[in-house]
C-alpha cells in the first residue's frame, strides 16, 4: 500500500467514524467533539474570571464603595450610617470645597490648551533630522523622567522670597520687593501650572513626534507649491494631520489637571497657600478624608471624589462631542 492509499484509507475510516458519531450527537443536541467541546456559555466567563475578579476587586468594588460611602457619615475610624445626599448638600455650601473646585477647573482651563499646543510646536522644532537632534530630543525629555517631588522642591527653592528668581529680579533693580510666588493665591497656582507644563511638555512632545511621522510629506510639498507659508502649513497641514493625537493629549492633560495634587501641595509645603486658598480638589479630598483620623469625614471625601469623577467624565464626554463636531465639519 502506498502512503497516499494508506492516508486515503485512514481518512475514510476516521471520517466515517467521526462523522457518524458527530451526526448522532448532533441529533441528540450533544456536540462535544473538537473545539465545539468548549463552546459553552460559561467558557468565556471562565477565561475572564481572573481579570474580571481583579477588575471587580480593584476597580468596581472601590468605586462602588466610594459611592456608597458618599451617602454615609463614615469617619476614618468609625462605621457610618446612611445620610442620603447630605454630604453632597454640605459640599455645595462648603466654601473650602467650592474654592478647591474653582482652582481645579481653572487649572484645566489654563493648562489644557497650553499642554495641547506647546508640545506640538516643540515636536515640530525637533522633528527634522539635523545633526545632534537626538541630543536635543533627550534634553527636552529630561523633565519628564525627573521625579515630580524633586522637581517641585527645586522649583520651590527657585521661587521662594529669597530664591534665585526673586534675588535676580531685585538684584537687577527690576523689582523693589520679592514676588510672592509661593504665598499669593493666584501666583502660587500659576507657579504650579508652569511646573505642570514644564514637566508634561516633553512627554506629549514624544506623542506628537510619532503622530507627525504619519503626516504625509506630499501634503506639505503641495501646500508649499501653492505658496503657503510656515504658519499656513502648520494650521493647514500639521494640525489636521495630528488632530486625533491632539484630542488624546487634551483628554489626558485634562484628567491630569483635574486631579492635580503634588505640584500645589509641595510648592505650598502642604498648606495650599495662605488659608488653603490655592488648594485643589485632590488636596481637599486628602485633607477631609485621609489625613485626619480624628475629624476626617470619609463620607464627605467620598462625595468629593464622586464629584471629581463626574466632572472628569463630563470633560471627556464634552471633548468627545467637540471632536465629533470638528470631524463633521
Amino acid at each position: 500500500m502506498t502512503r497516499v492509499e494508506y492516508r486515503e484509507r485512514v481518512r475514510a475510516q476516521v471520517g466515517v467514524k467521526v462523522n457518524t458519531k458527530a451526526a448522532a450527537r448532533a441529533r441528540r443536541g450533544q456536540v462535544l467533539n473538537g473545539a465545539a467541546r468548549f463552546r459553552k456559555w460559561w467558557v468565556p466567563w471562565l477565561w475572564m474570571a481572573l481579570p474580571l475578579g481583579a477588575v471587580l476587586a480593584f476597580y468596581i468594588f472601590p468605586f462602588g464603595n466610594t459611592v456608597l460611602l458618599s451617602l454615609t457619615n463614615a469617619k476614618p475610624l468609625g462605621g457610618g450610617t446612611f445620610v442620603g445626599l447630605e454630604n453632597y448638600i454640605s459640599l455645595a455650601t462648603d466654601q473650602t470645597f467650592l474654592n478647591a473646585l474653582l482652582n481645579s477647573l481653572l487649572y484645566v482651563v489654563c493648562v489644557v490648551p497650553l499642554m495641547t499646543f506647546i508640545p506640538l510646536l516643540l515636536a515640530c522644532l525637533v522633528r527634522d533630522k539635523i545633526p545632534g537632534i537626538g541630543l536635543f530630543r533627550s534634553l527636552y525629555y529630561l523633565p519628564a523622567i525627573s521625579s515630580v517631588v524633586v522637581v517641585s522642591l527645586s522649583w520651590s527653592f527657585l521661587l521662594k522670597d529669597n530664591g534665585i528668581v526673586n534675588e535676580a529680579l531685585t538684584g537687577m533693580g527690576l523689582l523693589k520687593e520679592s514676588v510672592p510666588f509661593l504665598t499669593d493665591r493666584w501666583l502660587l497656582l500659576g507657579s504650579a501650572m508652569v511646573l505642570t507644563l514644564w514637566k508634561g511638555l516633553p512627554y506629549y512632545m514624544i506623542l506628537y513626534l510619532s503622530a507627525l511621522a504619519n503626516v504625509d510629506k506630499s501634503q506639505y510639498e503641495a501646500a508649499e507649491m501653492d505658496g503657503a507659508n510656515a504658519v499656513q502649513r502648520f494650521w493647514g497641514v500639521t494640525v489636521p494631520g495630528v488632530r486625533i493625537m491632539m484630542y488624546l493629549v487634551a483628554v489626558l492633560s485634562a484628567i491630569g489637571s483635574m486631579k492635580v495634587f503634588t505640584e500645589v501641595y509641595l510648592l505650598s509645603n502642604g498648606t495650599g497657600g495662605i488659608a488653603g486658598e490655592s488648594s485643589t480638589l485632590a488636596m481637599y479630598i486628602r485633607d477631609v478624608g485621609v489625613a485626619d483620623s480624628t475629624y476626617g469625614s470619609l463620607g464627605m471625601a467620598s462625595a468629593a471624589s464622586v464629584v471629581l469623577f463626574v466632572l472628569t467624565l463630563g470633560l471627556m464626554v464634552a471633548s468627545r462631542r467637540l471632536n465629533r463636531k470638528v470631524e463633521e465639519q
Binding site: 468594588f61 464603595n65 456608597l68 462605621g79
Partner: peptide
C-alpha cells in the same frame, strides 16, 4: 461586597 465593605458594617 460594596455594602459589606469598610465603614458600613455594624
Amino acid at each position: 461586597l460594596a455594602v459589606t465593605g469598610c465603614g458600613l458594617g455594624g
